[in-house]
Design a protein around this nucleic acid. Sequence first.
DNA 1: CCGAATCCTGCACGCGCGTGCAAGAATTAT
DNA 2: ATAATTCTTGCACGCGCGTGCAGGATTCGG
Lengths: 340, 340
Amino acid sequence: MAEDTTSEPMGNVTADDVAAAAGVSRWTVNRAFKKDASISAKSREKVMAAAKALGYVPDLRAASLASDRSNLVALLVDDFANPHKLVMMERLTRILRKHGWDTLLVNTLGRDDANDALLNASQRRVDAVILIGIQFDDEVLRTASHARRFKKLIIFARVSQNPNTISIAVDDVHAMLEIAEYVRTKGYQRPMFLAGPRTVSAHLPRKQTFLAYWKEHFGSEPETCEVEAYDPVLAARVMADTLKGRPRDALPDIIVCENDALAMGTIDVIRHDLGLRVPEDIAVTGFDDVPQIQGPNYNLTTYRQPLTAMAEYLVTVLESQKDEDLSRSFKGHIVPRTSA
Amino acid sequence: MAEDTTSEPMGNVTADDVAAAAGVSRWTVNRAFKKDASISAKSREKVMAAAKALGYVPDLRAASLASDRSNLVALLVDDFANPHKLVMMERLTRILRKHGWDTLLVNTLGRDDANDALLNASQRRVDAVILIGIQFDDEVLRTASHARRFKKLIIFARVSQNPNTISIAVDDVHAMLEIAEYVRTKGYQRPMFLAGPRTVSAHLPRKQTFLAYWKEHFGSEPETCEVEAYDPVLAARVMADTLKGRPRDALPDIIVCENDALAMGTIDVIRHDLGLRVPEDIAVTGFDDVPQIQGPNYNLTTYRQPLTAMAEYLVTVLESQKDEDLSRSFKGHIVPRTSA
DNA sequence: CCGAATCCTGCACGCGCGTGCAAGAATTAT
DNA sequence: ATAATTCTTGCACGCGCGTGCAGGATTCGG
């Protein structure tokens, strides 16, 4: 028989098997896999050798069941049209994994599906739910936190009024003031603000801050426009409808967009539908600094959130035992490019 | 006391609690939550009412532990720079969830991390591992499938020579023949092929098919170029280095890209570094039909994979008990736009 | 070399649910 | 009304590991 020398790991190898092979008890085997457990170097070595030979890895389901700690978080996303989501997912999963956390990705189909998605997460007994979608309005949040099925409910990259909810986000007011000031000092006169869907309390601060700033400095309220999703394609459609056919002097000289997704669609419309130039005819600003707008094509003036710091802080939140309010806001910085 | 009428679900509500409340045994409770279990409508109703009152949901960890079926898959991704990954993740998570499967998203940092990532998945005892990265070369796959820790190892949207591996992908040869024929009939003369990283057997068929087709029809081998990642930014850098400074007649008249990510960077270079027009001076084709290239800006001629059908088939693969080879290839279709 | 402090190791019990079977209840046929 | 079916329900046992403790092995000071 040309069998492998290593006995084949048919079926599940359990800690008991390893214990037998290593000549220790099962508990010693599990200790060998725990970070700072009290175990002698010799025992650990023996165990690890036996484990490798048998192809044993601890079963995290059983560990989680026994300890009531899963080291698993659910990431709820409902907004895949926004390229920024890809950046966030990459950053979050990378940093979470670095610290030993696994991520359950739940595609929340829409607002009506939010509860099902949360249910989904709770069935896996995740240690926390992280929301990076837009459709989670205050009502959904209230329902979710009321059910108390989650130890932690975290809103990432967005603020929320809801109690029982931890918000890790950039300071929208500070950020938008920086952008507004940039726009003003560059001498623009007729700005338009392009907002995303007005889900309750979502990114409302950005719009309000800009409008308030402008009114304070010029006494006039800028024109605004709204798109129902952070989707470049949809944004382009809306902007085409809004701007096409206007006489030159009825057009804004700068369009301040709530984020890059909207800005991309806007730039496309300015160039290809209106036949105008960016920024000479109409300038554009965004928010998020997604990779797509960093090239020579869009070259968008935008605002960068400190995503890595936010993700690292998220980990400390996950590991915190305290019951205090762990919400925190971060400051990013403007990234000037040629679009404005 | 202004307490809720519903007793508060402090701590974990277990099936026993529900059983007590509903006046049945624990097993009847669990049966009520099983799809087609033999249980009377009356009992189920009682159980469900009690469950809702107590806020009970079955614990999938325990269920998985007891049944050795987790209804969980791990999705390993290592290539977040490629916007197509966002599309795939959205489609896969949506369709998997529709059929009752949860998704563990594992960010595979690089080739050396592949084994750790797989380990990660195996600790959660997932029912299958789905690979949509590029760094999983044959060696990694062999190691993974040799360990036999996974019931199923699935390569999505890519072929693989490895046995013990299920590949669900588009037929690269057929696809590239379609593109090549399109290029030829449009009258292009000096094509260049832009390939991605040459991880073993990855998308090699596309390149080889195109080169073979061209040689067969014109007797000449087209120029080729290679980028180390499916990253528009990196592609732009490479193409700028390659094309800048060439006299007009030394430039290709069309650049056939292995996918859209490369094509986007290429178009940016043609326009902004070379100052030329697409498609008049140099045409471009892509692969994948990502949303970003559908607008008026890139308007890329590309190839669309039947992602939904592929994802649905993935589910049937997951649910299949058979041991036969479940690999299957799909045919997509070319999407002609203005870039070529 | 002895006693005390320190370090390791083994163990009973429980985490919440699935499996397969057997007994009980409800239904139908005779 | 009784027997034969079918439907419904309860249960012992196990899935693999964590917790806290107690006894044994080891080390150190004097």
